[in-house]
């Protein structure tokens, strides 16, 4: 799980062009949106694409998004539970 969290941090920084942010700057338990990394709705769409492209995972219900994309940790848990 720790390895996946580190990998995810790197992927998020890359796809969202989070310049000047290092993986260690992101706390895996912090909110990705609002007070955390301050991501916006377009970033949320990029995270959905990231899950699809890199992990072959698609959310089955829209409502899942809020929980899955709450933090890096919640994304890692979802990937671990659903990986094919």
């Amino acid at each position: 799980m720790d390895e996946l969290i580190q990998k995810l941090k790197g992927e998020i920084i890359e796809v969202l062009n989070l310049e000047d942010i290092e993986p260690d700057d992101i706390d895996e338990k912090d909110s990705l949106f609002n007070d955390g990394l301050g991501l916006d709705s377009i970033d949320a769409l990029e995270l959905i694409v990231l899950l699809d492209r890199n992990y072959d995972l698609r959310l089955e219900k829209d409502e899942e998004g809020i929980k899955v994309f709450y933090s890096v940790e919640s994304m890692a848990k979802y990937i671990t539970a659903h990986k094919k």
Binding site: V15, L16, N17, I42, D43, L45, E46, V49
Partner: peptide, 9 residues
Amino acid sequence: YFPSPALFV
């Protein structure tokens, strides 16, 4: 086929 929302906007 992975349309990029960040590019599209």
